[in-house]
Design a binder for these strands. Structure first.
Lengths: 116, 116
DNA sequence: CAAAATATATTGACAGGCGATGTACTTTGT
DNA sequence: ACAAAGTACATCGCCTGTCAATATATTTTG
């Protein structure tokens, strides 16, 4: 099942930070990578992706450089900054808490549901 | 920690459906109930709540009636419809899948993280 | 040689959350 | 007695993030 845009909202940035924490990458590749990792549940749309990149750059969480492709289309690579890594870690912690809270608010038997 | 509005988006409706699945209730009470249940992590704002009620009513997932208060301010009670219950169940299922997907996308060791 | 894939980027529309604000009644503290 | 806080409902308008549509350019595939 696909993630709706309402669900996506709030996680896009962290998903991208996590993706970059595994190594520098570029937009097109990240879309594919994220689709693969999520078993097709999430195919980031271009406008969503590039707006997120701009946001993250402005906040100093990532930076970017042009790759030196011999052939093929040019690629802009993105890199996680130190600040970006710190943010990632705190957002991962936040996800664990959000998960717990939503279990409490959405499920009938949260205590049981957590060990699925 | 409080749920950000970006996170909330996409869950408000289901949270309200779940709340009503435990019995008819009214706006003010539901805000308090949800705050208690989430250990203060979520205090729904009035505009958010009432727009959600309108949305859910239009979709036939809830209906409402005025309570007959002897004293105090009038209360509009909300009730989960049959259709609303079905929706709740499918949204609960969706949450379990979303949880799994976000574990994959956000955490370093998803397999381990799931049994927290 | 056309279509699909690779790759980046912007514009404008849409939807949901929420600060600010308004109404009205009741309870509490002094 | 009276102000402040609590209970209870409701709306307007702003802000932000996602995305359909669109544009550009190169390379690979059928």
């Amino acid at each position: 099942m696909a993630l709706s845009s309402d669900i996506l909202r709030g996680y896009t940035d962290t998903i991208l930070l996590k993706c970059l924490s595994e190594g520098d990458s570029y937009g097109y590749q990240m879309i594919k990578q994220i689709a693969r990792l999520s078993n097709g549940a999430l195919e980031l749309k271009e406008p969503t992706l590039y707006t997120a990149f701009r946001r993250l750059s402005q906040d100093g969480l990532i930076d970017s450089y042009w790759g030196d492709e011999q052939s093929g289309a040019r690629r802009r690579y993105y890199r996680l900054t130190e600040k970006g890594l710190e943010r990632l870690i705190s957002e991962q912690q936040a996800w664990l808490e959000t998960r717990r809270t939503l279990d409490l608010l959405l499920l009938n038997n949260p205590a049981e549901a957590q060990s699925i």
